[in-house]
Simulated assay, not measured.
Amino acid sequence: MYEPIRTKSVHTMAGTAPSDFPHRSREEELDIQLAGHLAALLAVTDEIRSLAPSPALDTAAERLAQQVARLREGVTPVRSPAAAHEPQLVTLHQRAHALAGRALVVAASRADTAAAILAAEQMDAHASAAGSRALASR
């Protein structure tokens, strides 16, 4: 009663087979996403370090750079000293706290304990720094 379909579906891409383009696994996608969040957190941390240098921030920045390099298979993140103004310090700590939170969610999703611990530590550090700076400015 019915004839078999002899033509390709309109939903398949013309001339491409599934192996014609690269696919990444969920783990690879999470690695890329986590590296991006940690690199953004590193950039904000460097910006805060330019305004308020401290050994704790130096250590945190170095640990963040190591984690980004690990996730990017040895490629170290680009770092540049950024200049910011003093009133932005609280905002930078808030931004860093939010970025660390995003990194923590992705790290937990991929069960990366080292990155999750680092992100949680950074959340705590930036939350307390933002709170103390906000209180000091009142």
Rank of each mutant, 00 (worst) to 15 (best):
E3A: 13
A103W: 03
L64C: 08
Q122N: 13
G131R: 11
L38N: 04
S9A: 10
R63T: 07
R110T: 06
A65R: 12
V10W: 04
T7F: 02
E3N: 05
V105M: 14
E27D: 12
A40V: 04
D124Q: 12
A119M: 09
R63K: 09
S137T: 11
A69S: 07
L135S: 12
R24L: 15
A114R: 07
V10K: 11
E62G: 11
D124G: 03
H37K: 02
S109R: 15
A130F: 02
A108P: 00
E86R: 05
H37W: 15
V75N: 10
Q67C: 05
M1F: 03
R102P: 01
S80P: 00
R24Y: 15
R110M: 15
P81A: 03
P4C: 02
Y2C: 01
L89A: 09
L64W: 10
P77S: 05
M13R: 10
E27A: 14
T113S: 08
S54I: 05
A130I: 01
G15V: 04
T7H: 06
S19G: 03
V44I: 09
A43H: 01
S80D: 09
S128T: 15
R79M: 14
T76V: 02
V105E: 10
Q67W: 06
A14Y: 13
R133C: 07
R6P: 02
E28K: 09
V75Q: 09
I117N: 12
Y2R: 13
I117W: 08
V75C: 09
S50H: 12
T12P: 00
L104C: 00
L135V: 03
L64I: 04
A98G: 03
P53L: 09
A120R: 06
S132V: 06
T91A: 15
P87V: 15
A136S: 08
L99S: 04
A35G: 15
R79Y: 08
K8A: 11
A56R: 07
A84S: 06
A136M: 07
H126Y: 07
A100R: 01
L38H: 00
A136R: 10
A98Y: 03
L99C: 09
P81K: 06
M123N: 02
H23T: 12
I5A: 12
L42H: 01
E47M: 13
E29G: 08
A120I: 04
H11M: 12
L34M: 13
A17M: 09
D20Y: 11
Q66K: 02
A100Y: 08
L89Q: 10
E86I: 13
S128H: 12
E29S: 13
A96Q: 00
H93N: 14
A98W: 00
H97Q: 14
I117L: 15
T113P: 01
A136N: 07
G36N: 14
P87W: 07
R70V: 12
T45H: 03
L42E: 07
L71W: 04
M13D: 01
G101C: 06
L71M: 14
A96G: 10
R110Q: 12
S137N: 08
G74D: 08
R26I: 10
A136L: 15
V10C: 08
L41M: 14
A130D: 02
S80G: 11
M13H: 13
S109P: 05
